[in-house]
Computed example of a mutant assay.
Amino acid sequence: MPAAFSRLEVAVLGATGSIGSSALDVIARHPDRLRASVLAAGRNVGALLDLCRRHRPRHAVIDDASAFPALRDGLRAAGLDTRAHAGDALAALVASDACDTVVAAIVGAAGLPSTLAAARAGKRLLLANKESLVLAGELLMRTAREGGATIVPIDSEHNAIFQCLPDAHARGGLRRIVLTASGGPFRGRGRDTLAAVTPEQAVAHPKWSMGPKISVDSATLMNKGLEVIEAHHLFGVPGTRIDVLVHPQSLVHSLVEFIDGSTLAQLGLPDMRTALAVGLGWPERIESGVSGLDLLAQGGRLDFEAPDQEAFPCLRLAFEALAAGGTAPATLNAANEVAVSAFLQRQVGFLSIPALVEDTLAALPPIAADTLEVLAEADREARRHAEAAVTRLT
């Protein structure tokens, strides 16, 4: 094993979520190479303590400061020497020598400060927090370049593109990127059939196991819209050269087309551990626990279709926000978070999600996104507007 890849100390942010669980599964398969040194969670102290007992990290962080005493006392009661921290300490911790690699899997805008801190400190950043790129893509990519950080995207689609475009030489001949989408649980349904769908139906993703917010985003196609914005920043490709195809089998995770007519695609079973193993082992390949792809066993066919942007307008809204630039993507993201939360709480219907996002974008014209402070204010203003709109609907 090269010296550069002697035992990596890994911080898993969002450790109790689905991506965090997958990351810890891969890490546990390579005890001689990887160690979970920092585990961070939002407010689920019990789940975080269970992970600490299993993985014995050096540090554990709970974002909810009121839960800190329970974390501290729980670690002591378990006889662990893991140090307990409250949320405010997370950014400093990921920038310290407590870790070499950071799995950024905190959902929502809350993940931005720690992601930026890891990039600024030159860490290897396994990026699953899409909001960091949607809110502050230019800032994050610039910070990573200046800090010497390596970003490996962990979304299956962007990880696929990363594998197909390993170097600048390949990117020089790139014509376009094609992101694939499963279509979510409502693929093939017309807009007039979606008004009465329930949160339970929306989170029942046909292929992937994800948290409720990301599952709803997949059902509305907003998830794919956010990924378009991410791809623009990660790979330096304008939105006019990024396309989306619905691929219900979820075996082709993305495609890249080159100017010579060649198209490369990355295929694999729909399991986040593959992308995480790519990030944790890069540029080597390590075992992920995912079996190889048997196309015959999967039905022997691969289908593709155009997304229905009339039934699922969130994808169109994301393309429009990317084209508008400035604070528009931050406004889009914040309004969507508010709308999805309201839907999950049964305050608004499924079709109100794109309506609330579109209303917020129309009400708040974009301005130049020069600083994190400007982006934070755009995020707050969009949330205020969307929350007021939700109140009017309930």
Rank of each mutant, 00 (worst) to 15 (best):
P2G: 14
V12H: 01
L13W: 05
A15C: 05
G20S: 10
I27V: 09
R35D: 08
R35I: 11
A36P: 13
S37E: 04
G42P: 05
V45N: 03
A47I: 12
L48W: 01
C52Q: 08
R54N: 14
I62W: 00
A70D: 13
L71W: 04
R72G: 09
G79N: 02
L80A: 12
R83C: 15
A92N: 12
A95D: 10
D97C: 01
V107I: 06
G108S: 05
A109I: 08
A110F: 05
A110M: 00
A110K: 01
P113E: 15
L116R: 06
L116T: 03
G122Q: 11
G122R: 06
L125Q: 10
A128D: 14
A128V: 11
L133Q: 05
L135A: 08
I154C: 03
S156R: 15
N159C: 14
Q163M: 07
L165M: 06
P166D: 14
A168D: 13
G172R: 13
R175P: 00
I177T: 12
V178H: 01
T180S: 09
G184R: 00
G188V: 03
G190E: 12
R191I: 11
V197M: 13
T198V: 02
A204K: 03
W208F: 03
G211D: 10
V216P: 02
L226I: 13
L226N: 12
H232R: 09
L234T: 00
V244L: 05
H247M: 02
P248R: 08
Q249K: 09
S250N: 14
V256R: 04
E257S: 06
F258N: 01
F258K: 02
L264I: 12
L264S: 14
Q266I: 00
Q266N: 09
L267F: 10
G268S: 13
M272T: 07
L280T: 00
L280C: 04
G289A: 11
D294V: 07
R301Y: 07
D308T: 02
F312D: 13
C314K: 05
L315R: 01
R316E: 14
A318I: 13
E320H: 13
L322G: 03
A324H: 13
A328I: 10
A335K: 07
V338D: 10
A339F: 04
V340R: 02
Q345M: 01
R346E: 15
G349I: 03
L351S: 12
I353A: 01
E358W: 00
P365I: 03
L372G: 15
V374Q: 10
A378Y: 09
D379W: 06
R384G: 07
A388M: 14
V390R: 04
T391Q: 12
